[in-house]
Design a protein around this nucleic acid. Sequence first.
DNA 1: TTGTAAGCGTTATCAT
DNA 2: ATGATAACGCTTACAA
Lengths: 335, 335
Amino acid sequence: MADIAQQLGISRQLVSIVMRDAPGASAETRRRVRETADELGFAPHTGARTLRRTRSWTFGVVFVPSHPAEHEIVQSLYPLAAAHGYDVVLSAVTGTRGVQPAVDELLGHRCAAVLLIGSALDPAELEDLSGRVQIPLVAVGTAAGGTGHDVVRSDGRAGVAAGVEHLVSLGHREIAFVDLATMPAAALRRAGYEQTMQRHELGTDVVLASGHYTDDAYFEESGSEAAHTLLARDEPPTAVMVPNDGSAVTLLLTLARHGLQVPRDISLVGYDDIPAARLSAVELTTVRQDPELMARAAVDAAVRRIDHPESDPLESIVDTSLVLRGSCAALRTDG
Amino acid sequence: MADIAQQLGISRQLVSIVMRDAPGASAETRRRVRETADELGFAPHTGARTLRRTRSWTFGVVFVPSHPAEHEIVQSLYPLAAAHGYDVVLSAVTGTRGVQPAVDELLGHRCAAVLLIGSALDPAELEDLSGRVQIPLVAVGTAAGGTGHDVVRSDGRAGVAAGVEHLVSLGHREIAFVDLATMPAAALRRAGYEQTMQRHELGTDVVLASGHYTDDAYFEESGSEAAHTLLARDEPPTAVMVPNDGSAVTLLLTLARHGLQVPRDISLVGYDDIPAARLSAVELTTVRQDPELMARAAVDAAVRRIDHPESDPLESIVDTSLVLRGSCAALRTDG
DNA sequence: TTGTAAGCGTTATCAT
DNA sequence: ATGATAACGCTTACAA
């Protein structure tokens, strides 16, 4: 910055004013400063900036690179944060790098808030973390609950209910549900299935699948597992509600490789609306969790807690919508 | 840090020594400092640290969240960088955020080097970027070429050749190749196909597919496109070399949904060995680009250029290996 | 092993 | 509209 100031014969402070778009510099000065900054390949020193600034203008974002549903939220975060004047700094959770180191890195950057995307932490761990971290914490796409941190999630119960209702309205009565027990939001989604089935006086048919959330596979292997369970039966159900698109896609693939056509032989509803669900080879009818809305709710929550530290953490429930694609068909009546 | 020093009645510098694992503090002092740091929830201020340090100990990493092949490289980067004493800071390229802003963010963090993972930039753009950026630039998984920056890539020509050789050894003679023209490494991989086919005096059969690298779909839609081209033929080939796993998986899925079995009806070889290739529902035989090796080569290149700024940028070519899974079968002889 | 002093690049405050 | 000065939290070099 001093270089630019010297080259233009002005003070460093004036350059600073221009670089941070603060009032107090003429249009002509701004133009010239920007010009020489480009020439010199100058970028303001983020570290020095956060060091000196009275308050932090950075969101720390923890995410799991292998989870497709999180990418779109992360993508949406950048412009939304910028709209409030915040930068985003990313920290990845991987097989060899847990949530703790990821959060510590962000703390070192003196973030104003930490956003945990699709956290693998259960409510108790989250509660513990939000106690130790002294800045606002927003958990996105996690299970309900938590008094020390904000939560942004979709209404898994209502979302699944809508999916099941759709299948019922198509005439299906034998509707199975794949329970991904280790998924944070599993219980709520299962409740949505069970309630809807009971309301229609239909018997429930829960297919348990294993799989772990932080593994690379994002429950994709669970889809195969569930498919094999169904294929082993004499009379498979006519429809399946899968509370996770990753599993749904693999389920679809496994069925297809065993000669079962979707939706001709089995109708399928997923949850999330990940990019793969939109592929022409998949065309999955699914309960959409709008990533833009999730990101917006997360940013709003963070901003609120930063601006009003005394306010209580909130739980934002984002609406889901059923996206109708090609994976569901009306029940075939025999003959 | 001053808080810890005061609480323990020691100097700030001593705390600093402990926090950065520098020599000059007793074991007992270290223990007590660490303890109170945990109590107070203290994390060293990264900004202040980079500001004061003589040299930068940070790698900036540009990646595209939606590309599965990049995740594993990013994951490997953390421990490898740490082994050399470097931290990693991530910067995402998304639909609304190009390479330029991503790199600028990293420059603001005063990284010692920038690693571009699977860059969408062509050699000319890379050259331009490495001219403007005044720190070492390492392009991973890009096309060959470039004098101003290091390149880490697999030998696409040899990799594809190995895949095609495998198909030939299984008796296949009608082997198609899907050309993902907009993929940076496309030309080299196509050359490997053409050379191998010519060596065996077999006719080439190139199926063109569109798709764009920075799109979310990672060439997955291209797989469907290619599948439909093949399905429309009277006599589809008996084997297909697909130079990208994302496309290969979708190709497989599309074929399965149209009643063509892999490997019974068509054998398939992919490229990359993304996690999805390993799913039991996929079992794709593929040319593996070892992400750990790629990451290692990238880190080595960065360290070398940082420690020896005068040395010329190098091109590291990482070996590929053919991973045999279930997507290839010997050619069925009629009758 | 511990303490002292200086300074990294920026922004906030005050003065012109 | 512009400039001078101090301070942010840390590391480095050197002294004790």
